[in-house]
Design a protein around this nucleic acid. Structure first.
Lengths: 402, 402
DNA sequence: GCGACTTTCGAAGGTAACTTTCAAAAGTTT
DNA sequence: AAACTTTTGAAAGTTACCTTCGAAAGTCGC
């Protein structure tokens, strides 16, 4: 019960921002005294602190209470084809440490990749501890089909991994006690888009464009993972029966028409530099953007076609899930404004509910850090769920003489 | 806090069946004394009662505690094209009253249909009260696009209703205080499939075949309604671009290939009695079933094709949501065994996760009562959420001298 | 500028609900 | 029949909330 109300207060401060105890009390339906006691305990655990003075017109001004990032961190980590990365976020959502190591997971052995990732996590963890903070958990996002019940990466099409026990492998490297959890990369990236406090962003659908396509569903700010953890595999929904063959062996998968390759194929001839696999993706996308801004007809047509295909699939999902927003991430985000009209058009046409059921089309601004940010957010969720997992400062152990 | 633990006990008894206080205590992590007190209070509210003796080998045998259906009921109601219906369920899940009135909603004015429904609800309510029970709420399922924030039926394609304020209309007829809620018919039917206590049925996807197609998503035993309540409109996902024109104006909607009309078109010539709109649906389906069992090639081919189309759409949804089961309801349930192979085949082929992500294909056994049953279940959920909504018996008002 | 008013904050005592402790009840085993 | 095990219920203790009160820190009116 203590923990339930502590959680209530902490969440309120996260979602609605700093505010006085009195205000918390009326908003949460508790008495001022109770809130004072709760805030005192949270303060003792280093989770909140006194903020500035809050002028409210009449009467004595209150002193605001705000989240204190100084006590704990969550760590998010990611294994992808081209890199491993970590990020440590404190309770207030600020970045405390961040690392990224480029590598080619296809050329390295699985064990080597996990070695690198574990090193990165330990480095990040050490940095967190160096600031005087405690790590409450580490959530690792893995690109591919992840069986969450067994913490096994069933299939990682891009990594070319199969039945890899990522959970066990990392636990062995980090120590059996280290609080590490495995999750799907797209699910984590989706969580990162559900900004805490933004009520309009708690029920969203995130579509992730890279070479392939992924996605994640967020319901009430939490990832919807499905029965075995395989939810969000939008890329292989069949949207064009009899269409192009997909890398997965099927025909007409969404990613064959909305993946990056489809755009490049439509936008340029094979000898065009934007299709040169030796150039970086970012550069090639920048070039496409440049051409679009110059009004190049072929580029604009390709983007319009891409947007239409994104919209067709998005409409199916919106019919099924009626999200508040569909957030487009990955390479789609770079092309944002050139895609929006076509997507919106297809969404309006394809969703049965009027005005597309109120679903907005938005673009991610998180860049490549979405997955690690989401991982850190999920790790921190444990503290918001039950603030008593963070130990009180030593002096309280005596019984709280003050 | 009291209410939280009362809820915990009550849910446990529903989901896991009758058991002794001592067992409840160890399972829920409370002390035996606390559980005794909680059970005492639930008993006082008429929600649980003493059951038989529970032999456990050594030691004193416990007396089981079980749900007592004798105190409260939830009422589910439904407005559909051909009928209005109600059902009252007690806390134990037993049917206390049930009514069904056939009518043609297309030929009657909206007000008349609501009149009939309200009468039926009041009749049902009276019967509940005649048994000494109290109605805790009534949840009305409406077929069509329902904006839950305003309780307005935006579009009811089959009812031919548009922007009908069903919530306000019913409240006016039932009295402003009457605890009535409006919900989407398919969502309610989906909830009914999520049998309480069956862990394998708490994350499911229900697909509803009638003239059109509907559906519902259940996550953790609760309906996923989406941002504005429009979730579950599977019938108008486009599965066959360039295919047949749908009643909604689009082309290639799922219901154009998996709706009942598609089956009838494929299975019989226009002059065949199974396509005679004057005959009842049940009879026509029975005839198709009969022909299939006799091995009629055309019928079998039509069923196989229908199953394939169902499977194609189901695979898309399974990729997105990874449910534990896909439950086929409505007219699909009648044809169950003839459809299963084709559906399973498409599901295996179309879902990226191995073994279709563990998603099973099942058929509803609830028949036409699914929606009303689900409505009653949702209404009862209020009691499971907070058992203190049920007033204690009068003698407790004095302070509980015993 | 001073008192009246309003609102915040913290402390003291009361109450509800759980835990702990203990005793009685109702069986099985030896 | 005695010893043991387990369930149940009652009494006392603890925790965490609510109620009540007074002090602190502002604004407003004269």
């Amino acid at each position: 019960m203590r923990s339930a109300n502590l959680s209530l207060v902490l969440r309120r401060l996260r979602d609605e921002g700093p505010r006085s105890r009195a205000r918390l009390a009326t908003e949460l339906g508790l008495t001022r005294s109770a809130v004072s006691a709760l805030v005192g305990e949270l303060e003792d655990r280093g989770l909140v602190r006194r903020g500035g003075v809050e002028r409210g017109g009449l009467g004595r001004p209150g002193t605001a209470v705000e989240l204190d990032g100084g006590a704990v961190c969550g760590i998010g980590a990611e294994v992808n084809v081209n890199h491993v990365a970590t990020m440590a976020l404190d309770l207030a959502g600020d970045v405390v440490a961040e690392h990224r190591l480029d590598l080619d997971a296809n050329r390295l052995a699985v064990d080597e990749v996990l070695d690198r990732l574990a090193e990165l996590v330990l480095t990040t963890d050490a940095e967190v501890r160096a600031t005087g903070r405690t790590t409450v958990g580490c959530v690792v996002g893995v690109a591919g089909l992840l069986d969450r019940t067994h913490e096994v990466l069933t299939v990682g099409p891009n990594l070319h991994w199969k039945n890899v026990p990522v959970g066990a492998g990392l636990r062995a490297r980090l120590g059996g006690e280290y609080p590490v959890t495995i999750d799907n990369e797209s699910n984590l990236a989706a969580v990162a888009e559900a900004t805490p406090g933004d009520a309009a962003r708690q029920d969203i659908l995130v579509i992730f464009g890279e070479v392939g396509m992924g996605g994640g569903i967020v319901v009430d700010g939490r990832p919807l993972r499905g029965h075995q953890g395989y939810a969000g595999e939008f890329g292989h929904m069949i949207v064009e029966p009899g269409g192009r063959r997909c890398g997965c062996g099927r025909v007409g998968c969404w990613e064959t028409v909305a993946g990056m390759r489809a755009l490049l194929d439509a936008a340029a001839d094979p000898d065009d530099p934007v299709r040169d696999p030796d150039l970086s993706l970012a550069d090639r996308l920048a070039e496409i953007n440049r051409r679009a801004e110059l009004g190049d007809a072929r580029t604009l047509a390709a983007l319009d076609q891409l947007g239409s295909w994104i919209g067709v699939g998005a409409a199916m999902l919106a019919n099924a899930l009626n999200p508040a927003a569909i957030v487009l991430s990955g390479y789609y985000a770079e092309l944002g404004d050139h895609l929006r009209p076509a997507i919106a058009e297809q969404l309006l046409a394809g969703v049965l509910a009027p005005q597309a059921g109120g679903t907005r089309v938005e673009f991610s601004t998180l860049g490549f850090t979405a997955a690690v940010r989401g991982g850190a957010t999920v790790a921190l969720e444990a503290v918001f769920d039950d603030p008593t997992v963070v130990a009180p400062r030593s002096d309280a152990l005596t019984g709280g003489t003050r």
